[in-house]
Structures are given as structure tokens and as C-alpha cells.
Design a protein around this nucleic acid. Structure first.
Lengths: 150, 150
DNA sequence: ATGCGAATTAGACACAGTCCAATTGCTGGA
DNA sequence: TCCAGCAATTGGACTGTGTCTAATTCGCAT
């Protein structure tokens, strides 16, 4: 019996707790996210789950990730216009994003305080507050690729 | 001579101040954004600029918006995984986003205070801080479309 | 074994955004 | 006025992410 922290049996339990029928594919997808505990794109997850011999289709990966998000098992992180990242950490926290490298890291929510956010219009509810600190290396970027005017 | 606030001649001046050669197409694109002073997607801008008789291609709209962003004339707002919004307001401010309707509105930065953000790794520079307040109507959403497990 | 609903699948599709080679159009000389 | 040169624009092909659909397979209870 595999008793590592993110064993299949443990993950099956977690899925059930979220009202998700734990199939083989769903467990493997959950494992890709929770074993690494990193921000991954759908594409990366598809590749991870299928290394060795392919066993999960692209449609299933997308279906499953959307299901996990709906059930509150994981979070979407929208920082890059070209792809969504999936975040196994559902604790309140924020993100720091390197716009050059695409690297995404967590900022613990405990230390951060936000005040002065406006009252919501009546009948509105907060889904969440995203804070994204966009950073880059101070070294001047090569301007070669900039399509110029002037 | 048209002296309204966002007349072509005024806009041409603004473009020049940002080192952008003010061509006809660029002025019309700037006008779509600055006259309305709203968050618009590339698609919406393409449609606005070409209502009446078409005069600007899709490639030019994308080229121009990217150029405006590089030159600091407008900002990108990344809140929706499916498309980028362009924001003519470059003053520091944050956003409130209705996840159901896709409606995007500004939050004035003056009233908001954020403390406790971590120090940056050495050699890193902040590009910007995005705060997105994700909200929805409190009315329970129809669950009809939810692909279920359980 | 069989039947049945749920899950998965391949592949077509939709759509935002990029790329490229060809054309257009402006500007500044001669 | 004509022309050369260069920037801007263009259509259309292309890429990549994500969705949809109809058909198949899986797992389970009987």
C-alpha cells in the first residue's frame, strides 16, 4: 500500500471529498498538480500525464481541469494572455510573475494587506481578489524585436 | 478645424509625444479607445474602426495596439483567458471584473493601499501591480451547463 | 454475462493572435 | 513633377489554446 503523501489512494479520497468521481485519468491529472505543487498549463499537464505511454486525451485533460476548478480543488491563474495556469494551492495567496521568463511564484497572503477596495454594488459577491506583481530583470532587454515607428 | 477633445489633430499630437508616427489608421485606432475611454478588445476595436466602410486590416489593429502598449500610450488588461483588453487609462488604477458578464471597470488607485508585498529578488524590477477584484451577481447561477461528476 | 450511465476519446472546429511576402503610400530630393 | 527609398499596411496563411460532438469504452450493479 503506497502511503506517500500524494499516493493514488489519498488523491482518490481528496477527489471524493470534492464530489468528484475518482477515475484513473483524474487521479493522474491531480497527481501531476499536487505532487509537484507548481503552476502548470494544460499543455504541461497533458505532457506529464502521458510521459511513458499515452493514456489520457487532450479533451479529458481540459474537461478535468475545468471540473477541478468548478469543484474548488484547484484555481485558475490568468496572467499570460496565451494560456491559463492551474494552481493546486487554493489557500489565499497572490502571485509574482516574471514577464520575460513566464515564471510564476506565490506570494503568501498573510503578509499582504489591501485596504480601500470599494464597496461592491448591491447584489454582487466577491469571487476572489487577484494580485499580480509583474516583474522583470533590470537588465535592458534587447530592442531588436521592437517594431518601431518614430 | 475640429477642436473636440479627441479630435484627430489632438490625437496626432499625443501619438507624436509617444514617438509614434501618426498615420490615418493609428489615429482612428487611438480615437476608438480615447473617445470612449473604455476597455476594448482588439476585435471590438477592429469593428469600431471599420464601421461605415472598412479601412483598417486586422493585422494593422494588432500591430498598432502592440505598438501603443510598448510606447506606454495604453495598457493591456489580462483578466479573461480568451482575450486581451486594452485600456486607454495609464494612470495607476485597478480593476473590478464581473466574471459572468465580462464587464470590466476601474478602481481608482488613490483609495487603495497595499502593504506587505515581498522584496523583489535582486536585479528585478517591478513592471506593475495588477489587482483584480473578481465579482459576480449573488443570484445562484443556473447549473444546467455544469458537466458533472459526483 | 448484460445493461446502463458516466467518462473518455479522436478529430473537427472556433477563435485570438502572429507572421510573411507583396503592395501601397508618403516624403524628400533632383 | 518625377522618382527613389522607406515605413506602414495588407490579405491570407499559419499557430496554438481551448471547445464541441458523436462514437466508443469503462466500471459497476444486477
Amino acid at each position: 500500500m503506497d502511503m506517500t503523501r500524494h499516493s493514488r489512494s489519498n488523491l482518490a479520497g481528496v477527489l471524493r471529498q470534492h464530489g468528484i468521481n475518482p477515475t484513473h485519468q483524474r487521479i493522474e491529472i491531480a497527481r501531476a498538480l499536487f505532487a509537484r505543487f507548481e503552476h502548470l498549463s494544460a499543455d504541461q499537464i497533458l505532457a506529464l500525464v502521458n510521459e511513458g505511454h499515452p493514456e489520457t486525451s487532450r479533451a479529458t485533460v481540459y474537461n478535468t481541469l475545468n471540473l477541478f476548478v468548478q469543484r474548488g480543488l484547484i484555481r485558475e491563474v490568468i496572467v499570460d494572455p496565451s494560456k491559463v495556469f492551474y494552481d493546486p494551492n487554493t489557500q489565499p495567496h497572490y502571485h509574482i510573475y516574471d514577464v520575460r521568463t513566464g515564471r510564476l511564484a506565490d506570494i503568501d497572503a498573510d503578509s499582504v494587506r489591501v485596504t480601500g477596495l470599494p464597496d461592491l454594488p448591491p447584489g454582487m459577491v466577491t469571487e476572489g481578489v487577484d494580485i499580480i506583481l509583474r516583474v522583470r530583470s533590470a537588465a535592458p532587454e534587447s530592442e531588436a524585436a521592437v517594431q518601431g515607428a518614430a
